[in-house]
C-alpha cells in the first residue's frame, strides 16, 4: 500500500546542510493503522509530507498503491493526492470563510462531479463524524474537537484508501482527543482505510496496530500491538 525505499530528505542552505530523513524504509499494508512517534524535529512531519506527496524526497522511492511516484508532474501528483489520500492536520487547516459543508466539499471540487453528488457525499461524511447538524456553520463557530471532526469529514469525503494524520489530537483535550481517535479507529476497522498517524501521545499510539519511533531521521524502534 505504502512503500518508502531508502528515502532521504536533506534541507540545504548556502552554509548548512540539514538531514531530516536518512535512508528511511517503510512498508505499510492495506488496512493497517500505523502511528509514528518521536521528539520534535526528528522528521515525523517531513516523513508524512513525503508519504502524502506534499514534499519530494531528496533521494529514494515512494510507492503508493503500487505506483512508483517518481517523475510525476505537478498535475499528476495533484490528481493522485485527490483520488487516494486524505489529510488531517494538527491545526485543522479549514478555510474560515467557507461553511462546514463547503470545506468538506473541497476535495470533490477537483473531481468531475455534480453539485448534488458533492453535497450528498459531504453530508454523508459529516454524518459519519456526527456533525450533520452543523453543515451551515462556519469553522470559527465550532469547538476544536468539532473542527477536527470537520477536517476528518473532509479527509474521508473522497473515499481515499490512505489517510495521513499529523498530530490530529495535538490541539485537543483528552476527551476530545479520544473522540477523534475513536472516529479514526472506526474508519480503519469498518472501512479498511489505511491510516498513518504522527502523534506525541503514547496512549493514542497504543491503540493503533503498529508504532514506529523516529529519531534524528532514522527508525529507532518498531512495535506491533494485538488488540
Amino acid at each position: 500500500m505504502i512503500s518508502l525505499q531508502n528515502v532521504e530528505k536533506v534541507y540545504q542552505t548556502t552554509s548548512i546542510e540539514t538531514v531530516a530523513l536518512d535512508g528511511i524504509n517503510l512498508e505499510v499494508q492495506q488496512g493497517e493503522f500505523l502511528s509514528i512517534m518521536g521528539p520534535s524535529g526528528c522528521g515525523k512531519s517531513t516523513l508524512l509530507n513525503i508519504m502524502g506527496l506534499l514534499d519530494e524526497p531528496s533521494a529514494g522511492d515512494v510507492i503508493l498503491n503500487g505506483s512508483k511516484i517518481t517523475g510525476y508532474s505537478n498535475k499528476q501528483l495533484a490528481r493522485f493526492r485527490n483520488q487516494n489520500i486524505g489529510f488531517i492536520f494538527q491545526s485543522y487547516h479549514l478555510i474560515n470563510d467557507l461553511k462546514v459543508i463547503d470545506n468538506v466539499e473541497l476535495p470533490l471540487l477537483y473531481r468531475n462531479m455534480s453539485r448534488k453528488e458533492r453535497y450528498d457525499l459531504s453530508v454523508e461524511a459529516l454524518t459519519k463524524v456526527g456533525l450533520k447538524n452543523r453543515i451551515d456553520h462556519f469553522p470559527n463557530q465550532l469547538s476544536g474537537g468539532q473542527r477536527q471532526r470537520v477536517a476528518i469529514a473532509r479527509a474521508i469525503v473522497g473515499k481515499p484508501t490512505i489517510i495521513l494524520a499529523d498530530e490530529p489530537t495535538g490541539n485537543l483535550d483528552s476527551r476530545m482527543g479520544n473522540e477523534i481517535m475513536d472516529i479514526l479507529l472506526k474508519l480503519n476497522e469498518e472501512e479498511g482505510t489505511t491510516i498513518v498517524m504522527v502523534t506525541h501521545d503514547e496512549s493514542m499510539a497504543l491503540k493503533t496496530h503498529r508504532l514506529a519511533r523516529l529519531f534524528d531521521g532514522t527508525w529507532v524502534e518498531e512495535k506491533a500491538f494485538q488488540h
Binding site: G52, L54, A78, R81, N82, I95, P107, Y110
Partner: peptide, 16 residues
C-alpha cells in the same frame, strides 16, 4: 498562501 496550501493538499493543481 495558507489556503493555497490546503487546496493543493486536497488535490488542486497549480493551474487550478
Amino acid at each position: 498562501r495558507g489556503e493555497i496550501g490546503i487546496r493543493k493538499s486536497m488535490g488542486s493543481s497549480n493551474t487550478e
